[in-house]
Simulated scan of single mutants.
Amino acid sequence: MHFIITDAWLAKSRAVHLSGTKLVVAFVGLSFSLMLLAAGLYHWVFLKGAREGWPVIGTLVKLVVKDEFEQRDRFMRENLDAMARKLGEMQAKMVQLESLGERVSGLAGVNPADIKVPPGRGGALVGGRPLSMEELQATLADLDALTVERTDLLTVIESRLLDQKLRTMMLPTQQPVKAGHLGSAFGWRIDPFTGRSALHTGLDFQAEPGTSILAAAGGVVVTQEVHPAYGNMVEIDHGNNLITRYAHASRVWVKVGDVIKRGQRIAEVGTTGRSTGPHLHFEVLVQGVPQDPHRFLAAGRDLAAPQVAMQAGPSSLRHAGHR
Results as ranks from 00 to 15, higher is better:
residue 105 S to L: 01
residue 49 G to R: 00
residue 201 T to D: 15
residue 77 R to P: 05
residue 121 R to M: 09
residue 175 Q to S: 12
residue 77 R to D: 06
residue 249 A to G: 06
residue 149 E to F: 04
residue 224 Q to K: 08
residue 51 R to P: 06
residue 115 I to A: 09
residue 31 S to G: 13
residue 302 D to R: 12
residue 147 T to S: 12
residue 252 V to P: 00
residue 207 A to H: 03
residue 186 F to M: 08
residue 77 R to H: 06
residue 43 H to M: 07
residue 262 R to T: 02
residue 30 L to E: 10
residue 255 K to V: 13
residue 135 E to Y: 03
residue 287 Q to G: 15
residue 195 G to W: 09
residue 117 V to H: 14
residue 298 A to W: 08
residue 182 L to V: 13
residue 83 M to Q: 13
residue 316 S to N: 14
residue 224 Q to W: 05
residue 138 A to S: 14
residue 281 H to P: 10
residue 116 K to Q: 01
residue 240 N to P: 04
residue 162 L to F: 10
residue 301 R to N: 11
residue 45 V to R: 06
residue 109 G to E: 15
residue 260 I to K: 03
residue 274 R to S: 04
residue 82 A to L: 03
residue 9 W to S: 14
residue 11 A to P: 03
residue 253 W to E: 06
residue 140 L to N: 01
residue 51 R to K: 13
residue 197 S to G: 05
residue 251 R to F: 03
residue 229 A to M: 12
residue 134 E to W: 00
residue 75 F to H: 15
residue 268 E to G: 03
residue 114 D to S: 12
residue 141 A to F: 06
residue 179 A to W: 02
residue 142 D to P: 02
residue 236 I to D: 10
residue 247 A to N: 04
residue 192 P to Q: 00
residue 226 V to G: 00
residue 164 Q to H: 14
residue 5 I to Y: 01
residue 317 L to A: 12
residue 26 A to G: 15
residue 38 A to G: 10
residue 283 E to C: 07
residue 30 L to V: 04
residue 54 W to M: 09
residue 181 H to M: 13
residue 118 P to M: 05
residue 197 S to Y: 00
residue 98 E to Y: 12
residue 20 G to Y: 05
residue 315 S to C: 08
residue 75 F to W: 09
residue 281 H to F: 15
residue 167 R to T: 13
residue 82 A to D: 06
residue 296 F to H: 10
residue 251 R to Q: 08
residue 24 V to F: 15
residue 107 L to C: 01
residue 144 D to I: 13
residue 272 T to G: 05
residue 108 A to S: 02
residue 123 G to R: 11
residue 168 T to K: 05
residue 26 A to T: 06
residue 143 L to R: 00
residue 318 R to W: 14
residue 213 I to L: 00
residue 13 S to C: 08
residue 212 S to D: 15
residue 157 I to H: 08
residue 119 P to K: 03
residue 149 E to L: 15
residue 262 R to S: 05
residue 136 L to H: 13
residue 83 M to W: 06
residue 152 D to E: 14
residue 92 A to C: 04
residue 90 M to P: 00
residue 212 S to M: 08
residue 285 L to M: 15
residue 289 V to A: 12
residue 146 L to Q: 14
residue 155 T to V: 01
residue 222 V to R: 05
residue 247 A to T: 06
residue 132 S to F: 01
residue 77 R to V: 01
residue 313 G to T: 13
residue 224 Q to L: 00
residue 124 A to Y: 09
residue 299 A to C: 10
residue 319 H to I: 12
residue 286 V to S: 09
residue 104 V to W: 02
residue 166 L to K: 12
residue 232 N to Q: 12
residue 196 R to S: 14
residue 10 L to I: 11
residue 315 S to V: 10
residue 52 E to G: 01
residue 235 E to S: 03
residue 162 L to N: 13
residue 222 V to G: 07
residue 11 A to W: 05
residue 270 G to I: 00
residue 90 M to T: 06
residue 188 W to S: 02
residue 57 I to T: 14
residue 257 G to L: 06
residue 145 A to N: 07
residue 192 P to E: 06
residue 141 A to W: 02
residue 140 L to C: 02
residue 203 L to M: 10
residue 276 T to K: 01
residue 108 A to Q: 08
residue 110 V to Y: 07
residue 261 K to P: 01
residue 50 A to C: 07
